[in-house]
């Protein structure tokens, strides 16, 4: 490969070079009997066009092939290269080394997840939480023939919440996730909101059962760090507070209004339930 393609991670000595920088990388090698992570320093070229991920790739290719980390697209869309850079959750493909000069740049695995090896975290908890919020369109009516059309305004209602790339930076930033492993967490609740606000969806009440719980929206105390960390500007913190407001008004209506009128008082038409008169 190296014969066919130019090695973009090699130190090529162009005018993009601005010296070197130290990367202080967390290592954890349980297979070698390590019980706790340690750090290891690597001196790498500091190039203007290099992100932290390029630095890691340089280490892997030229200095230490035993380093483990996840990455794929290098363009901020796959969501696999999230790590803590100087303590902040970042997509390492979007965090440029020059912003951390003169260094050292600390690179650690995402917080609030167990570490498997080096910078690789175990994401099973997140993967199990996502489907709990029923992140699909719930509509008992048969789908319309042809497209289910939406106006630009209807799309704008939920589009922001559909930008999530499941990078889990918000889970790393959220202290509640660290304190309560059962807390559904920012991305999952924002994703629920993405479907609740979709004009084609009728699942508001179904999701409320899962979300109006201690492990759901009521576990959040609006620290707001999920929104700060989000590389896609999803604003999970805002989504959760909006959800609290609608869930609370829903409860208030259920308390005040007679049962027969409750369904109609929800956000949009309620799903057809057994016993409902057509």
């Amino acid at each position: 490969m190296a014969d066919t393609y130019p090695d973009v991670t090699a130190d090529t000595g162009t005018d993009l070079d601005t010296g070197t920088i130290t990367m202080r990388v967390t290592r954890y090698r349980p297979e070698d009997g390590e019980l706790e992570p340690t750090t290891q320093d690597y001196q790498i070229p500091l190039r203007k066009d290099w992100a932290v991920l390029d630095g890691l790739n340089h280490i892997k290719d030229h200095i230490d092939a035993t380093l483990s980390y996840r990455w794929s697209c290098r363009m901020g869309i796959c969501g696999s290269c999230g790590m803590l850079v100087n303590g902040e959750p970042k997509l390492t493909c979007e965090a440029f080394l020059t912003d951390y000069a003169p260094g050292p740049v600390r690179v650690e695995p995402l917080a609030n997840f167990p570490v498997i090896r080096d910078l690789v975290v175990e994401i099973g908890s997140f993967m199990r939480k996502l489907p709990q919020v029923k992140p699909w369109i719930i509509d008992e009516a048969p789908p319309p023939a042809g497209e289910h059309r939406q106006t630009p305004a209807q799309v704008a209602e939920y589009q922001q919440y559909s930008m999530c790339i499941n990078c889990m930076l918000c889970y790393s930033a959220c202290p509640i996730v660290g304190l309560d492993e059962h807390f559904l967490g920012p991305a999952a609740i924002a994703l629920a909101q993405r479907y609740n606000l979709d004009s084609r969806d009728q699942g508001v009440l179904d999701r409320l059962e899962v979300l109006s719980t201690d492990e759901g929206i009521w576990g959040c105390t609006f620290v707001g760090e999920c929104t700060t960390a989000c590389p896609k500007h999803v604003d999970p913190a805002g989504a959760i507070q909006r959800y609290k407001l609608s869930a609370a008004t829903e409860s208030l209506k259920a308390f005040v209004l007679p049962k027969s009128r409750r369904a109609r008082a929800t956000n949009g038409p309620a799903p057809a339930k057994e016993g409902d008169t057509p």
Partner: peptide, 28 residues
């Protein structure tokens, strides 16, 4: 314990005063 198919995960404990370490947490 570590085996090839069952790696030993490292879980970082949350310190009691987790909120003094970061400005944004302290402000919260």
């Amino acid at each position: 314990g570590y085996t090839d198919f069952h790696p030993r995960w490292y879980r970082r404990p949350m310190p009691v005063f987790w909120w003094v370490r970061r400005r944004s947490y302290l402000a919260f």
